[in-house]
Measured scan of single mutants.
Amino acid sequence: DVEPGKFYKGVVTRIEKYGAFINLNEQVRGLLRPRDMISLRLENLNVGDEIIVQAIDVRPEKREIDFKYIP
Rank of each mutant, 00 (worst) to 15 (best):
D1L: 14
V2S: 02
V2C: 04
V2P: 07
V2L: 09
V2W: 06
E3Y: 13
E3W: 11
E3G: 06
P4T: 14
P4D: 06
P4A: 14
P4L: 15
P4E: 11
P4H: 08
P4N: 10
G5D: 06
G5N: 09
K6I: 09
K6G: 09
K6A: 09
K6C: 10
K6M: 11
F7T: 07
F7R: 08
F7M: 09
Y8I: 02
Y8L: 03
K9P: 06
K9N: 08
K9R: 14
G10T: 02
G10C: 04
G10D: 00
G10W: 15
G10E: 00
G10K: 00
G10S: 02
V12M: 01
V12D: 00
T13P: 00
T13A: 10
T13I: 09
T13R: 06
R14V: 08
R14Y: 07
R14Q: 12
I15Q: 01
I15E: 00
I15F: 02
I15D: 00
I15A: 00
I15H: 01
E16F: 12
E16K: 10
E16P: 02
K17S: 14
K17P: 15
K17G: 10
K17V: 14
Y18P: 01
Y18Q: 06
Y18A: 05
Y18V: 07
A20Y: 03
A20D: 00
F21W: 15
F21T: 07
F21P: 00
F21I: 12
I22N: 00
I22D: 00
I22H: 01
N23S: 14
N23W: 10
N23K: 13
L24T: 03
N25E: 06
N25I: 04
N25Q: 07
N25A: 10
N25T: 12
N25M: 05
N25V: 05
E26G: 13
E26Q: 14
Q27S: 14
Q27I: 13
Q27L: 14
Q27R: 15
V28T: 13
V28H: 09
R29M: 12
R29H: 10
R29I: 13
L31C: 04
L31F: 08
L32D: 01
L32K: 01
L32G: 01
R33K: 08
R33P: 01
R35M: 10
D36N: 14
D36I: 02
D36W: 08
M37T: 05
M37H: 03
M37Y: 02
M37F: 03
M37Q: 03
I38W: 09
I38H: 14
S39D: 15
S39H: 14
S39T: 12
S39R: 11
L40A: 08
L40W: 04
L40K: 08
L40Q: 06
R41K: 14
R41H: 12
R41C: 09
R41I: 09
L42H: 04
L42Y: 06
E43H: 12
E43A: 13
E43R: 11
E43P: 06
N44C: 13
L45E: 00
L45T: 02
L45A: 01
L45I: 11
L45N: 00
N46Y: 14
N46G: 12
N46D: 10
V47M: 07
V47S: 04
V47H: 04
G48T: 03
G48L: 05
G48E: 03
G48S: 05
D49Q: 13
D49T: 07
E50L: 15
E50S: 15
I51D: 00
I51P: 00
I51R: 00
I51V: 09
I51M: 07
I51T: 01
I52M: 11
I52H: 07
V53A: 02
V53N: 00
V53R: 00
V53C: 04
V53E: 00
Q54H: 05
Q54S: 06
Q54T: 07
Q54K: 10
A55C: 13
A55G: 02
A55V: 15
I56L: 14
I56D: 04
I56V: 12
D57W: 09
D57Q: 15
D57T: 13
D57N: 15
D57C: 10
D57A: 15
D57E: 14
D57K: 14
V58S: 08
V58Q: 05
V58T: 08
R59D: 08
R59F: 05
R59G: 05
R59P: 03
R59L: 05
R59S: 06
R59C: 04
R59A: 04
P60I: 11
P60D: 08
P60H: 11
E61S: 13
K62C: 08
R63K: 14
R63S: 12
R63P: 08
E64T: 11
I65N: 02
I65W: 08
D66L: 12
D66N: 09
D66P: 02
F67G: 02
F67K: 02
K68S: 12
Y69L: 05
Y69S: 03
Y69A: 05
Y69K: 02
Y69R: 02
I70W: 13
I70V: 14
I70F: 13
I70Y: 12
P71W: 06
P71Q: 08
P71N: 08
P71D: 09
P71R: 08
